[in-house]
């Protein structure tokens, strides 16, 4: 099966000249059709920026300086900015974190969805409406005709996220980037949205990048996982392998700091220190200052990616070999 998206050495920087900050440094990522890849990391690790680099919606002061973004055979870096609009929404869909903010508060649901549909598909009005009603019904919205006429503030958070998902799916894009779409929702709604995304993705064979910091969500939804730290992918592999037997000390630290993974009454272990500032990255391994397995080699040389036995790729000079406690 040919991958839908392949990132090779993606490098994105903020600012210019001496002020230049490497926010993404050589990110590799592969997503196949019908596959869900979770992108995990703390805030500031570059996981959202990876999403925006793919669909060309970087902030004004950021730009891609290296690597390739291969979307089923097209390198998106060679596509001129004007042409990118035709890819956004049609080939690559995106869902955002806070459903309260994703929908324009002063436009009806119908207007927003209609604009998204017409962006790539100039249909007559009546046909547009039918398509929209069908799209809302598909994401499990009852009485879609009425919801279509609603203002965003009249809908609940879960309902709005469903509208956003329906909108992103209008043109059946090959790839969907979901940027923490369940973080702002109640736990019960969160489960529903996860199940919905999983179902739609498998049915349609859509490739899905699920950006999150929540390992429980990763365990529940993803096929593969990439762990990001300070703009780099430090570990990548099948979700079971990575969560059961993390090879990178950082991944291990993340898993250990999830409360459910620790016996009751014990102190929750934390990774000491904090993520380095982009302006002050360590010379060798970016995780070295916080790492318990640090050696002189870690301080001088950035570790190259290497394969472990379990199908993982890890960037570490001293990868772990013992398994972590399984996720509950």
């Amino acid at each position: 099966m040919a991958p839908v998206l392949t990132l090779r050495g993606l490098t994105t920087v903020f600012g210019k000249g001496t002020q230049e900050l490497r926010a993404l440094d050589g990110v590799d990522l592969t997503v196949n059709a019908g596959e869900i890849v979770a992108l995990v990391g703390e805030s500031g690790s570059g996981k959202s920026l990876t999403g925006f680099s793919i669909n060309g919606l970087l902030p004004a002061n950021a730009r891609i300086t290296g690597g390739s973004i291969d979307l089923s055979g097209t390198d998106l870096r060679t596509v001129p900015a004007r042409e990118m609009r035709k890819i956004r929404g049609k080939e690559v869909g995106m869902i955002f974190q806070d459903p309260m903010m994703t929908l324009n508060p002063v436009l009806r649901v119908e207007t927003q969805m209609r604009d998204a549909l017409r962006a790539h598909d100039p249909l007559p009005r009546a046909a547009l409406r039918e398509r929209l009603i069908a799209a809302l019904a598909e994401v499990g919205i009852a009485a879609p005709e009425q919801r279509l006429r609603a203002w965003p503030h009249e809908l609940s958070g879960g309902m709005r996220q469903r509208v956003a998902i329906a909108t992103a799916l209008l043109h059946s894009p090959k790839l969907i980037i979901a940027d923490e779409p369940t973080t702002a929702l109640d736990v019960t709604i969160q489960g529903q949205i996860l199940a919905l995304a999983q179902k739609l993705c498998k049915e349609r064979g859509t490739a899905l990048i699920w950006i999150t910091h929540d390992l429980a969500v990763v365990a529940g939804i993803a096929d593969r996982v990439s762990v990001m730290y300070a703009g780099r992918v430090v570990e990548e592999g099948p979700v079971d392998a990575v969560l059961d037997a993390p090879a990178h000390p950082y991944t291990r630290g993340l898993i250990d700091s999830v409360a459910a993974n620790q016996p009751k009454g014990t102190r929750l272990p934390m990774i000491p220190g904090r993520m380095p500032l982009l302006s002050d990255l360590p010379k060798g391994c970016v995780f070295a200052p916080r790492c318990s397995r640090r050696s002189a080699l870690c301080d001088s040389t950035s570790p190259p990616p290497r394969a472990t036995g379990q199908g993982q790729t890890v960037r570490c000079h001293h990868p772990l070999t013992e398994p972590a406690g399984a996720l509950a």
């Binding site: 669909n55 919606l57 609009r85 035709k86 890819i87 956004r88 929404g89 049609k90 690559v92 869909g93 995106m94 955002f96 974190q97 806070d98 903010m101 994703t102 929908l103 324009n104 508060p105 927003q112 604009d115 998204a116 962006a119 790539h120 956003a164 909108t167 992103a168 209008l170």
Partner: peptide, 11 residues
């Protein structure tokens, strides 16, 4: 976000 969302949809 809503402007980003509109752009991400290719509007």
């Amino acid at each position: 976000d809503y402007i980003r969302f509109a752009r991400a949809n290719g509007v």
